[in-house]
């Protein structure tokens, strides 16, 4: 085991990409389970209020959801492409791909913003008179909708911050052709954000 110079410089005595990935995957488990608690709540209430959930789901615009799904899936593609690019030493291309990911993530959030503001305009938000006049199942549906998509949006923002740091690392050379594990881990986080949306999308927009 001969420690590489750059690893010693970074304060580590070793470089073990497999170990780093194990750590990241364990962290992703915790994120999945964090959302798992809410999926559980969703399942319980869907069983309890099946008809009201159907009625409430009609209020959501499947087109907006579909567009956002396409945006997020494409952003996962660009992250994967940036990893491949850096592994082939194409630093500039990797930066462009990450830049595209940021633009797509921003587009997702803007879309989400307009979707939420539309709901607010028609009075569908927690504690509003319109919502409180509806049956309990619909109140719960919109409660879950705001909490789950809201927490997901927070994760999108965290993901953007992580990828911004990665862009900085590529610029400074800390992520390079032979040392791309940080970008791979950042990419894994981005894919997690994506996959959670893949489950949120049908649960709220598609099942009627």
């Amino acid at each position: 085991m001969k420690p590489s110079e750059s690893a010693v410089h970074a304060g580590h005595h070793h470089r073990d990409d497999t170990g780093s990935k194990i750590g990241m995957w364990l962290f992703l488990f915790t994120e999945l389970i964090l959302f798992g608690g809410m999926f559980l709540a969703y399942a319980v209430y869907r069983l309890q209020y099946p008809n009201e959930f159907k009625l409430a789901a009609i209020e959501l615009d499947a087109l907006v959801g579909t567009v956002n799904t396409i945006i997020l899936l494409t952003s996962s593609l660009t992250v994967a492409l940036s990893i491949t690019a850096i592994q082939e030493g194409k630093k500039h291309l990797a930066q462009i791909m990450l830049g595209m990911t940021q633009v797509l993530a921003l587009a997702f959030l803007v879309n989400k913003y307009f979707e939420w503001s539309h709901k607010f305009e028609v009075g569908l938000f927690p504690q509003s008179d319109v919502l409180l006049s509806k049956p309990p199942g619909e109140i719960i549906y919109f409660g879950l909708y705001y909490v789950m998509t809201g927490l997901h949006a927070v994760h999108v923002i965290i993901g953007m911050a992580i990828l911004a740091v990665m862009m900085g690392f590529i610029a400074s050379g800390r992520i390079a052709k032979d040392n791309a594990v940080r970008l791979e881990l950042g990419g894994l986080y981005w894919h997690l954000v994506d996959i959670i949306w893949i489950f949120l999308f049908p649960l709220f927009y598609l099942i009627h």
Binding site: Y45, L132, P136, L144
Partner: peptide, 17 residues
């Protein structure tokens, strides 16, 4: 903060959950 109702029986939520 927001009173979304997930655990509030007055809004249809379930404290046992």
């Amino acid at each position: 903060w927001f009173g979304v109702g997930i655990f509030d029986p007055a809004l249809g939520g379930d404290p046992v959950l």
